[in-house]
Design a binder for these strands. Sequence first.
DNA 1: GCCGTTTTCGGCCCGACTGTTTTCAGTCG
Length: 585
Amino acid sequence: MSAPAARPDPPNAAIAALFDELADLYELDGASIHRVLAYRNAAKTVREAPRSIAALTREGRVTSLPGIGKTLEEKVTALLETGSIPAVEKLRARFPQGLVEMTRLPGLGPKKARTLFHELGVDGLEALRLAAEQEQLRDVKGFGAKFEASVLAALDAGLGGALAPRVLLHKALPIAEGIVEALRAHPAADKVELAGSARRRADSCKDLDIIATASDPAALIAAFGELDVIESVSGVPGQNAAKARTHTGMPVDLKVVAPDQFGNLLQHFTGSKLHNVSLREAAVRKGLHVSEYGLLDDATGQTHRCSTEHEVYERLGLPWIPPELRENRGELALTDAGGVPVLIEHADLVGDLHMHTTASDGRNSVEQMAEAARARGLQYIAITDHSATHGFGKHVTPDDLRRQIERVREVDAALEGIEVLIGTETNILTDGSPDYPDELLAELDWVMGSLHTAFGHEPTRRLVTACEHPWIDCIGHPTGRKIESRPPYDVDMEQVIDTAVRTQTMLEINSAPDRRDLNDIHARAARDAGARIVVDSDAHGTNTLGITVWGIATARRAWLTKADVANTLPWAQFAPLRKRATAKR
DNA sequence: GCCGTTTTCGGCCCGACTGTTTTCAGTCG
């Protein structure tokens, strides 16, 4: 028997996709919903794992992850050894891909898709449309004319296949806060709070949820519908609630509730779903049943309503948990308030070590950036223009950079109240080296190294090599992901983090609202491994220096405290932490 | 399929809405 051919490890995202597909296929197959959920749960665990699942499996440690047991371990092992999972192949042969697409239509789930496939041979969206138009669906038991109409309406609306678009947090949050502010100003309003993924500061939001109490609910709901940002609104029959849509197409739900249930509703609609599921499972073990309406106590048969969210958690024996942590990533193991991390605040940042000027692709001069940063209360900034091989914008040649060193030194000398440092964002070439000579990098105060080209070309090795470089102080936007538009490079972050720790290379949380890179998972893993983290704006103009709020949001979702982020330190304490300050010359 | 202050089996969150039905299954959040 010949030795098996070397096979590259499947990335975690690929394994997660297979588990999700298995969940879909088993659901079509009529498997127990608990088994299906086990696969979905495992897919999420794999997708969020900061370590390589393939490596963990080879080390025999993959079952230490929550939701991964013997059976799933075997499936990953089969994938590593043969390149495929037998169960996936078998089920794919039985259920056409079109059935999964059908289940994305509203009101059409796996059970109905399976029935239509078996009864009518409907195997996808095209066959479904034909059968609906020919009024064949109503002949199947459990289906009727209304179902046919809703299927056709959904297909005509272009649904099916595509997932609903999610709006990036920096677009969603201002809309949400504007609505909340306007409602609070209304005389009928009492409490108004944002809930949902926007309150948790997630990367993106599907919709907005707002919970309120009011002396006159109907008046508040009417005022909601009249807001300028609202395009259309519909009431929810029998409830003090409204469903609306903004002019940008974002759904907004407003619920006006009794004051003594405000805490329950706010907690429920803040989520996340997985946080709530775990919370309720833990509650059941204590004889309590949590819903949006209150806490039912088995012992007394009474339902306790909570006017505050703090009371909900308190009755469950938990400290209040900051919304950013409510992702079922260990927050329910926090037993008392002392264990809850004091999360970093935006005001804690005193330095910004990544920004651009007109020397490369920025819109403002060094002076303008420095003055704007000082006005924002920053104590130090690094000017880090793109380098010579960036590939677009101006090419900052070594001579250009030498002139920029002089320019920045002049501005620094002229400006009181802020330290202006000269740096660069050097491009990491395909061999892992920076694109400026070492002597030039040595003259700078600070060097970011980032990938901007050839993303598919060995990103892990290049980032590891960059960390080993004596003059690269920090890796910029380490995974290259663009939220909702570009997946991360196929990079083994565990290796990069380990190398960063060993070489004292810092890792950036880039605050660009479509990056937020490191993400919350990786930033937490980096901190836990002992890496130094900086939160930077990557501003390309004075007007975007403040986007560090999004980087801070990610840092908070990563459980980071002020002490975990290096540029909360004054320059005198930050400077010695740079690799160049400690490297043997 | 996972998991254990109910531990190796028997559970595994909560509620609302819809359409098709005479009491409920499926879907959704």
